[in-house]
């Protein structure tokens, strides 16, 4: 048994892979918008999107236009943005806590968001900020709490952060379950859908905040690829390589919490993307963040786009929660990758 001697995607193969995913993304977008309860021709989809982007009349039937531009397109865009944001946040958090099992949820951020959202649904709007606002506030509050619990002598260590996050998650999940028990039956399906994640029913107006946060957050993280690599080698090594470890880790936690919070505030707790996508990409490219992060963002977006397409089309007219799909696709894929790696060994 020996490990492979070098990365699978090295040298010129990496830009090719990046280009392939970058091309697949708009194609996937058109497919996701064309397919559904009513299948629409791809040509119409192109035409409607192009027309709206250039402020012209599309000439396509008004109902089809509404399905394409008013309903399916924002939904598909949210799937891409949410997938990209969660995957990037997961990849970065795995470096921050140096734990391969970390995902955007390991620091209790989702549990906080879920509790706040469920509370907003069952107990009535929290001070008029709505479910999304409550979820975002919950995400921020739980991160602050984890940071407070995870520090000792003024420093944060990776292990303490994870332990504090896991402990807090259980506590918050318990509280969420308690609220679920007390929920009225008519609230329950909405609750469940939110807890498992969904990109349905969004309009363009809901997209502004997550799009801006994911774009800015990802750009900020991409510019810090070298320092992320150094962090992966350990706190002390990172320090000797000129990374102010403590401050950098706080910045990374804040940015990833912002990413995660902005995504789950509109899409709910979509699981597995943040865990599986970074690992799948890393198995191909190796751990260098300057190479992984762009591919992680694109692959995460594509993955969630296709997962949502499957969620809408697999069992019509029933729409499956996204979390069920991402787990059903993600877990076997993950196991396959692991087995495939050991086949190379």
């Amino acid at each position: 048994m020996s490990t492979p001697l070098t990365h699978l995607l090295s040298g010129r193969r990496y830009p090719l892979a990046l280009a392939a995913v970058a091309v697949a993304l708009p194609l996937g977008l058109v497919a996701a918008v064309a397919l559904g309860a009513v299948d629409l021709p791809a040509a119409d989809v192109w035409q409607v999107i192009a027309a709206h982007l250039t402020n012209r009349e599309s000439g396509v039937d008004a109902i089809d236009d509404e399905i394409i531009w008013g309903s399916r397109a924002p939904r598909a865009v949210l799937a891409i943005v949410a997938g990209a944001g969660l995957a990037v946040a997961g990849a970065v958090l795995q470096a921050v806590v140096r734990n391969p099992l970390a995902d955007p949820y390991v620091l209790g951020v989702t549990s906080g968001a879920s509790l706040a959202a469920v509370a907003a649904i069952t107990l009535g709007g929290l001070a008029g900020i709505g479910v999304a606002g409550a979820a975002f506030a919950g995400a921020c509050a739980s991160l602050a709490l984890v940071l407070l619990l995870g520090r000792r002598h003024g420093t944060l260590t990776a292990t303490r952060l994870v332990l504090a996050g896991v402990a807090l998650s259980y506590l918050l999940q318990g509280a969420t379950s308690f609220l679920q028990l007390r929920a009225r039956p008519d609230e329950l399906s909405g609750l469940l859908f939110w807890l498992l994640g969904s990109v349905s029913g969004v309009g363009w107006g809901d997209l502004a905040v997550p799009c801006a946060v994911v774009a800015c957050g990802t750009a900020w993280l991409l510019a810090r690829g070298r320092r992320l690599n150094a962090l992966l080698l350990g706190d002390e090594t990172a320090l000797t390589l000129g990374v102010p470890v403590h401050r950098f880790r706080l910045e990374l936690l804040a940015v990833t919490a912002l990413l995660t919070g902005a995504v789950i505030a509109v899409a709910g707790g979509v699981g597995f993307v943040g865990l599986v996508v970074p690992h799948a990409v890393r198995l191909l490219t190796g751990p260098d963040h300057r190479r992984t992060l762009p591919l992680v963002a694109l692959t995460g977006g594509l993955f969630l786009l296709l997962a949502d397409l499957a969620a809408r089309t697999l069992m019509p007219p029933l729409e499956l929660p996204l979390g069920v799909l991402t787990a059903a696709i993600g877990a076997p894929f993950f196991l396959w990758l692991l087995r495939r790696e050991s086949a190379v060994l």
């Binding site: 090295s10 070298r226 690599n229 390589l241």
Partner: peptide, 12 residues
């Protein structure tokens, strides 16, 4: 990391 990537972290 590959050997090359480890050495490259020296440029941080």
């Amino acid at each position: 990391f590959t050997a090359l990537e480890i050495v490259a972290t020296g440029r941080t």
